[in-house]
Amino acid sequence: MEKKVIVYSTKTCPYCKLAKEFLKNNNIEFIDYDVGEDREKLEEMIKKSGQMGVPTIDIDGEIIVGFDKERLKQVLGI
């Protein structure tokens, strides 16, 4: 089954851009929230991850902070 992937990001953060590109290049669908604009989603991200760094990526409840390619690969099984 496809995993549900959520990316919490800001427009200006280079690692967010890289993380999203990585997902796209691997044909992984994801929902992208701009937490610089969306206050509610920012709160949600903080609640889930206990921190404020972006990107924060939620893969079926598994939280990855930062663009950690190896962990992404592992969790996504690619």
């Binding site: 800001t10 427009k11 200006t12 953060c13 280079p14 690692y15 967010c16 701009d34 937490v35 610089g36 604009e37 920012l42 404020m52 760094g53 972006v54």
Partner: peptide, 10 residues
Amino acid sequence: TYCATCDAPL
């Protein structure tokens, strides 16, 4: 944070 460019919007 150590990266204003990244995190200022938060």
